[in-house]
């Protein structure tokens, strides 16, 4: 049960990203702002903060894999980026674990690196035609706003889940 709790909750975030979010908030192209939900990425980052780099990277590869297979027709891009970000954000110090502020800051920075990586890979492949300045304004800031807000909502429930899992592990060890 405890083992499946993290993958299942990340999978739910992944489904919400592509289905609920896109259906309930249909985006119009005219304004040019692109609101990219990255809820699953927040889950992956928190996993690697609380459970260490190995669990985080596996979670990242799992989500990235699903992402590549279902949403994009180009394999490997998201698998690599999710795994890479999970590893880069594995600060499992007690200071970070105990403060929502640090966790939020790490998510904020990780979003920056993640969007940048995806942009550069897609730019090299010729899929992204946006100039860098436009990318910063229309995608990066939009992503920070929406995912920063989502992170605020997700921090508390995820911490509860991880604490509950740790409790369960302690009980089992006795």
């Amino acid at each position: 049960m405890t083992r499946f709790l993290i993958p299942v909750s990340i999978f739910c975030l992944f489904l919400i990203e592509g289905t609920w979010f896109e259906i309930l908030f249909p985006q119009e192209n005219e304004s040019g702002w692109v609101w990219m939900p990255r809820f699953a990425l927040i889950g992956v980052i928190l996993t690697s903060i609380y459970r260490g780099p190995v669990a985080g990277v596996w979670a990242g590869i799992f989500v990235g894999f699903l992402y590549d297979f279902t949403y994009t027709q180009i394999l490997g891009v998201y698998t690599f980026c999710f795994g890479f970000i999970a590893y880069m954000s594995s600060y499992s110090l007690p200071v970070v674990r105990n403060s929502y502020g640090w966790q939020w800051l790490i998510i904020f920075c990780a979003l920056f690196v993640f969007e940048l990586l995806i942009y550069f890979i897609y730019f090299l492949l010729g899929i992204a035609e946006l100039s860098f300045g436009e990318f910063l304004v229309k995608r990066m800031i939009a992503s920070w706003l929406i995912n920063g807000a989502a992170a605020l909502l997700l921090l508390v429930p995820f911490r509860r889940i991880f604490e509950w899992i740790e409790d369960q592990e302690k009980i089992r060890q006795r």
């Binding site: 990203e17 592509g18 896109e22 692109v34 939900p37 279902t70 994009t72 027709q73 899929i127 992204a128």
Partner: peptide
């Protein structure tokens, strides 16, 4: 029925 849409809008695909 449309069941999903690619959330990053780099490629415009729906499922």
């Amino acid at each position: 029925l449309v069941v999903y849409r690619n959330p990053d809008r780099w490629t415009q695909t729906i499922g």
